[in-house]
């Protein structure tokens, strides 16, 4: 019993010493564990000793152990509250300094713009298809209703690898590849790189991106072509943009159309407008109803199915959308240019 009393006295002294040293909640928890931990805390150990005492000694022993427990608990509680009450936090930093800047990479403007275009067509239920960049004369020209010696081929200045092998001049050959494989209904867009024999200047490059669209089904009309492209152009530019369809010529569509949008830079009011040349309109898309000969070439009966196709230069459209005056900027890959897509 005396031994117990001494122990309690010793613990109490130790507690009183240690509690003055506590700096934070962590220290508080450590001290609490030391005394009150269920398994190895001092109080628990005292109760172990308690079990060895004679029955008549137990009531007093129990009382003094509990007194210590309460003493410790109360003191710890007070300290706990002291720690918890909000102290005024000292301000040691300048809140106006810039925040941490995580360095993120930027998408390339053309790829970024291509994805915006894809997104619009995906919401209209179009699937995305791709095809080879090295093509045969058949897919690039012949199947698209460009006869072997037709001057229409001059409008597509071609880079050749061999007589029959070339770098595709448009994404249209993929139309043929898809129609050969798949039966209607077909509703696809085909984005990709195309190649032309062009000497680089601000508006011409030997390589650029195009996106092609193709819809084939029963009962597809020119009205559907107009509806689709109007929806697309309004989504890409703005809801109020003016759109004009006018007759044109492509070997693989009949009737064919060129689609212009109003020049939002000058609203058609500046005769010397750098963007539209004063006409007030910008040529943005070529389109038309798929030529019956093209359908026949892929064994689709033009009496049963009809469809429309359209094609757009992604670079050219991006130039207009972002007000970039020189197409070559896209392929210099100056990071000061590219990273503008990412952030201001």
């Amino acid at each position: 019993m005396k031994e117990l009393k001494n122990k309690i006295e010793k613990y109490k002294t130790q507690f009183n010493r240690e509690i003055t040293l506590i700096q934070d909640k962590k220290g508080l928890q450590e001290l609490r564990n030391l005394f009150l931990s269920r398994k190895k805390g001092y109080v628990s150990l005292l109760f172990e000793d308690f079990k060895t005492l004679k029955p008549e000694e137990r009531p007093e022993a129990g009382k003094i152990i509990n007194e210590l427990k309460e003493y410790v608990q109360t003191k710890l509680q007070v300290l706990q509250e002291e720690f918890s009450t909000a102290k005024k936090v000292e301000k040691t930093y300048d809140l106006t300094l810039p925040g941490k800047d995580v360095y993120l990479g930027s998408p390339h403007p053309i790829v970024h713009f291509q994805q915006e275009i894809e997104q619009i067509f995906l919401t209209m239920g179009f699937a995305i298809e791709e095809g080879p960049e090295i093509e045969t004369d058949y897919y690039n020209f012949e199947a698209l209703n460009f006869p072997q010696h037709h001057p229409a081929r001059d409008d597509w200045d071609t880079l050749y690898i061999k007589d029959d092998l070339l770098l595709r001049t448009h994404t249209s050959p993929v139309q043929i590849r898809v129609m050969e494989k798949k039966k209607p209904p077909i509703r696809i867009i085909i984005p990709g790189k195309v190649f032309r024999k062009e000497t680089p200047d601000p508006t011409h490059l030997p390589m650029f991106f195009q996106v092609e669209g193709l819809v084939i089904d029963v009962g597809i009309t020119f009205a559907h072509l107009k509806g689709t492209l109007e929806y697309f152009l309004k989504a890409l530019f703005n809801e109020n943009i003016k759109i004009r369809f006018r007759p044109s010529f492509f070997p693989f569509t009949e009737p064919s159309a060129e689609v212009d949008i109003e020049c939002t830079v000058c609203d058609g009011k500046n005769e010397d407008c750098r963007v539209c040349g004063g006409s007030g309109w910008i040529e943005i898309l070529g389109a038309g109803m798929v030529d019956p000969q093209v359908l026949k070439n892929v064994n689709i009966d033009p009496e049963k199915h009809s469809g429309f196709a359209f094609g757009m230069g992604i670079d050219r459209t991006a130039m207009f959308a972002f007000q970039i005056s020189d197409m070559r900027n896209f392929y210099e890959n100056d990071l000061r240019f590219i990273r503008q897509v990412l952030r201001k």
Binding site: S106, H108, I110, V111, F195, Y331, L335, I338, R339
Partner: peptide, 8 residues
């Protein structure tokens, strides 16, 4: 950063 170079 993403770049696009010519195929030539």
């Amino acid at each position: 950063d993403e770049v696009v170079n010519f195929s030539f």
